[in-house]
Amino acid sequence: FACQWLNAHFEVNPDCSVSRAEMYSEYLSTCSKLARGGILTSTGFYKCLRTVFPNHTVKRVEDSSSNGQAHIHVVGVKRR
């Protein structure tokens, strides 16, 4: 389900990036709304992400508004 969900909601775009945590959060929200069992852990979800978008990269984005915490963004992917 996770791989199908990724294909339905995201697409390849080399000029874009999406927060990896936001992607997983949206996946969890969809699973909750659909009352799905067998929800992937974040590790399983990221493995699926690598399968669906094998050419993506990740980058660390520093967020000055959150006490220097960094966010991981998936580069080469955008929301549909």
Rank of each mutant, 00 (worst) to 15 (best):
R60H: 03
R60G: 14
I72G: 07
H73N: 05
S25A: 14
I72A: 13
S42Y: 01
E11F: 02
C31R: 09
Q4P: 02
S42W: 06
F1S: 09
T51P: 07
G37E: 03
S19I: 06
W5V: 02
C16P: 01
S64G: 10
V18Y: 14
Y27V: 00
I72C: 07
G44V: 08
L40C: 08
R20L: 08
V77D: 00
M23I: 07
V77N: 00
C3R: 02
I72H: 12
D15L: 04
E26G: 13
R60T: 13
N13Q: 06
A21N: 09
S66G: 10
L28F: 15
S29P: 01
H71M: 08
N7I: 02
G44Q: 12
N7G: 12
C48R: 04
V77M: 13
W5G: 00
R60F: 10
R20E: 15
P54A: 09
F53T: 00
W5M: 04
A21T: 09
P54G: 05
K33F: 02
E26S: 08
A21G: 14
N55D: 10
V52L: 07
R60K: 11
N13F: 04
Q4G: 12
H71C: 15
V58W: 15
I72S: 12
Q4Y: 07
S32D: 12
I39A: 13
T57Y: 12
C16T: 14
S19R: 04
K59A: 07
W5L: 01
L34K: 15
S66I: 15
S32A: 07
T41D: 14
V12M: 14
N55R: 12
T30Q: 15
S42N: 02
F1A: 06
S25D: 11
K33N: 01
L40E: 10
P54F: 03
A35I: 03
H71V: 13
D63C: 10
V74P: 00
T57R: 05
H9N: 07
G37F: 02
V61A: 12
S17Q: 05
F10W: 09
W5Y: 14
G44T: 07
R60E: 12
E26F: 12
H73E: 02
A2C: 03
A35C: 09
M23T: 02
S19L: 12
A35V: 06
Y24M: 14
A8K: 15
K59Y: 14
P54Y: 03
H9K: 11
R50F: 13
K59P: 04
P54M: 08
T51N: 15
A2P: 06
I72R: 13
V74Y: 15
L28R: 09
P14T: 09
N7Y: 06
R36V: 13
D63Y: 13
R20Y: 03
R36K: 15
E62F: 13
C31Q: 03
E22Y: 06
S25W: 04
S17N: 02
A2S: 13
S19A: 07
C16M: 15
E26I: 10
F53V: 00
F45S: 00
R50D: 06
M23Y: 02
L40M: 10
A8W: 03
R20H: 05
L49C: 12
S65R: 12
C48S: 11
T41W: 04
C16V: 10
N7W: 05
N67I: 03
S64L: 06
H71K: 08
L28H: 13
R36Q: 10
S32P: 10
F10A: 00
V75A: 13
A8D: 06
E22F: 08
D63S: 02
H71S: 11
K33Y: 03
S66D: 15
M23V: 07
S19G: 12
H56P: 01
R20A: 06
N55M: 13
Y27P: 00
I72N: 15
K47T: 08
G68C: 03
H73A: 08
L34D: 15
N13T: 08
V75H: 11
C31V: 13
C31M: 10
F53W: 09
V52R: 03
V77P: 00
D63R: 04
V58S: 05
E11Q: 03
E22P: 04
F53N: 01
H73K: 14
V18K: 04
S66Q: 13
E11T: 12
S19K: 03
S17C: 08
F1K: 15
L49A: 08
L49I: 13
S65P: 02
T51Q: 10
E11I: 05
S32F: 02
A8S: 06
N55H: 09
K33T: 07
R50E: 11
H9T: 08
V52W: 02
A21W: 07
I72D: 15
H9S: 14
H56S: 11
G38I: 08
I39P: 12
H73F: 05
L40A: 09
P14M: 11
R36P: 08
N67H: 05
C31P: 07
K59Q: 15
F53G: 01
E22G: 14
F10M: 03
V61T: 07
A35N: 12
W5D: 00
S42I: 15
T41Q: 04
E22S: 14
G76Q: 02
F10V: 02
Q4A: 10
V12Y: 02
E62K: 09
H56E: 02
G44K: 12
K59M: 02
L49P: 01
I39V: 11
S32Y: 02
H71L: 12
K47M: 04
T41P: 15
Q69Y: 06
N7Q: 12
S32E: 12
V77H: 00
S25Y: 03
S65C: 02
G38R: 13
P14L: 07
R60P: 08
L49K: 00
S29H: 13
E22W: 04
G68A: 13
H73S: 07
G38S: 11
S42V: 06
V74D: 01
H9A: 08
T57N: 12
L34M: 07
I39N: 14
R60M: 05
M23A: 04
N55P: 03
H9Y: 04
E62S: 08
S32H: 02
R36H: 06
G37D: 15
T51Y: 03
P14Y: 03
V52I: 10
C31T: 07
E62D: 10
I39K: 13
V12R: 11
H73V: 09
I72P: 15
S42G: 12
K47S: 10
H9L: 03
C16S: 14
T41K: 10
H9G: 08
N13G: 12
R50C: 05
N55L: 13
V61H: 09
Q4V: 06
T30A: 09
L34P: 11
R50V: 13
E62I: 15
E22C: 06
C16R: 09
N67G: 12
I72L: 11
F53M: 01
T57P: 10
L28K: 12
V61W: 09
A35G: 11
V12F: 10
A2Q: 00
T57V: 02
S66P: 10
H71F: 05
H71P: 12
V18M: 05
N7V: 06
I39W: 08
P14C: 03
K47H: 05
A35R: 06
L28A: 13
S29C: 07
H9M: 05
C31G: 12
A35K: 12
G68L: 12
E26A: 10
Y46N: 15
W5P: 00
V52F: 01
Y27I: 00
H73M: 13
N55C: 11
W5H: 02
E26V: 05
C3Y: 07
G38M: 09
G76Y: 02
C16H: 03
T41H: 02
S29W: 03
C3D: 04
L40S: 07
A8Y: 10
